[in-house]
Lab assay of single mutants.
Amino acid sequence: MTYKLILNGKTLKGETTTEAVDAATAEKIFKQYANDNGVDGEWTYDDATKTFTVTE
């Protein structure tokens, strides 16, 4: 399945997608991606749209 991440960081904003077997796997990938890019904030997930959002 395709999952989407919306980044609302102070210095980085944008979107990315990943292919993952489930939401938990996608979350791990996205949290590593956000960490690698210096984004740390409040996480939400919308199962209907398979979208994670992180807001600093």
Rank of each mutant, 00 (worst) to 15 (best):
Q32W: 06
T53G: 03
E15H: 12
M1P: 09
N37S: 08
Y3D: 00
W43M: 04
K28R: 13
Y3W: 07
T16A: 13
I29D: 04
I6K: 07
I29R: 07
G38Y: 07
T16N: 05
T17E: 14
T16V: 15
G9I: 09
G41T: 02
E19F: 15
Y45H: 02
D36I: 11
L7D: 01
A34Y: 03
E56V: 08
A48F: 12
T44H: 11
D22F: 04
Y45R: 02
K4H: 12
D22T: 05
A48S: 12
E15P: 04
K28L: 13
A24Y: 12
L12Q: 09
F52L: 01
A26M: 02
V54G: 01
A20H: 03
N8L: 11
T2P: 06
D40T: 13
M1Q: 14
V21I: 13
F30K: 00
G9K: 04
D22P: 01
L12I: 14
E56Y: 15
E19T: 14
I29E: 05
T49L: 08
D22N: 08
T16F: 14
D22K: 03
D46T: 05
G9V: 11
E19Q: 15
Q32I: 12
L5H: 00
Y33W: 13
K28S: 09
T44F: 11
F52H: 02
D46E: 08
T11D: 11
K4P: 00
T44S: 15
Y33I: 08
D22W: 03
E42I: 15
K13H: 12
T49V: 06
T53I: 08
K50H: 13
K31D: 02
D36R: 11
F52A: 01
K10E: 08
D40S: 14
T53F: 09
T44Q: 10
A24I: 09
A34M: 06
T49K: 07
T11A: 12
N8Y: 12
K50P: 00
T55S: 07
T49R: 07
V21W: 11
D47V: 11
G38I: 04
N35V: 14
T11Q: 10
K31M: 09
D40V: 15
T18Y: 08
T25K: 06
T17M: 10
Y33K: 03
Y33P: 00
N37W: 15
N35H: 15
G9L: 14
D40Q: 15
T2L: 14
T18A: 11
E27T: 05
V21M: 12
T51W: 02
K13M: 09
T55R: 06
T11G: 10
T2G: 05
L5I: 03
Y33G: 01
L12D: 05
A34D: 00
I29L: 07
Q32S: 09
Y45I: 02
I6Y: 09
A34Q: 02
N35Q: 15
D46A: 05
D36S: 10
E27N: 06
G38D: 08
T11V: 09
D46P: 00
A20K: 02
Y33L: 05
A26L: 01
V54Q: 01
A34I: 06
A20F: 03
L5P: 00
A26P: 01
D36K: 11
E19M: 15
D22S: 07
A26F: 01
G38R: 06
A23Q: 10
K28V: 10
G41S: 02
A23F: 09
W43D: 00
F30S: 01
K28M: 12
K13I: 11
I6H: 05
V39L: 12
F30L: 05
T53A: 05
T55M: 07
E15K: 07
T51M: 05
T55Y: 07
L5S: 01
Y33M: 05
E15N: 07
T2K: 11
V54D: 01
K50T: 04
E56F: 09
V39Y: 08
T16P: 03
N35A: 14
A34T: 06
L5T: 01
K28I: 10
N8G: 04
T2S: 08
T18F: 06
G14Q: 14
I6F: 07
I6R: 06
T25N: 08
T44D: 07
V39T: 04
T44R: 08
D22R: 03
D22I: 03
V54E: 01
K10H: 09
T17Q: 11
A34S: 05
Y33Q: 03
V39F: 11
F52T: 00
T25V: 09
D22E: 04
Y3V: 01
T17L: 12
T49W: 05
F52E: 00
A24V: 10
V39N: 03
W43F: 04
T2W: 13
E15V: 13
A24S: 11
T25L: 07
G14K: 13
T11I: 10
T11W: 15
A48G: 10
M1E: 13
A26G: 02
T53V: 08
K10N: 12
G38H: 10
W43L: 03
G9S: 10
V21Y: 08
W43P: 01
Y3L: 01
T25H: 13
D46W: 04
M1T: 15
T53D: 03
G9N: 04
W43E: 00
T2H: 09
L12A: 08
G38W: 05
D36P: 02
K13F: 10
E56K: 04
A23V: 12
T49D: 05
N35I: 15
E19L: 14
I29M: 08
A24P: 09
A20E: 03
T51E: 04
T2Y: 12
D46M: 04
T16Y: 13
N35G: 10
Y33R: 03
V21S: 13
K50L: 10
T16W: 15
I6E: 04
L12M: 13
T17F: 14
D46Q: 05
K31F: 07
Y33H: 05
T16H: 14
G14T: 14
L12P: 04
K28T: 10
G9H: 07
A23K: 15
E27D: 05
D47L: 08
D46R: 04
A34V: 08
E19S: 10
G41H: 02
T11M: 11
V54P: 01
D47A: 14
F52S: 00
D46Y: 05
D36M: 13
V21K: 14
V21H: 09
T55E: 06
L12F: 15
V39K: 02
N8D: 09
E15D: 06
A26I: 02
T25G: 08
D40M: 14
T16Q: 10
F52Y: 06
T55L: 06
E19P: 06
V39E: 03
E56N: 05
Y3N: 00
V54S: 02
D22Y: 04
T18D: 03
L7R: 02
A20T: 06
K4Q: 05
Y3S: 00
M1R: 10
N8R: 12
G9Q: 04
T25F: 06
T2R: 11
M1L: 15
V21Q: 10
T25I: 08
F30P: 00
L7P: 01
A26H: 00
D40P: 04
T17D: 05
K31A: 06
E56P: 05
F30A: 01
Y45K: 01
N8E: 11
M1N: 14
A48Y: 11
E15Y: 12
N37Q: 14
L12N: 06
K13N: 09
D46I: 05
K13G: 05
T51Q: 04
A48E: 13
A24N: 09
T44G: 07
V54L: 09
I29V: 12
D46F: 04
V21R: 08
A34K: 01
Q32Y: 06
G14S: 14
E27V: 06
L12G: 07
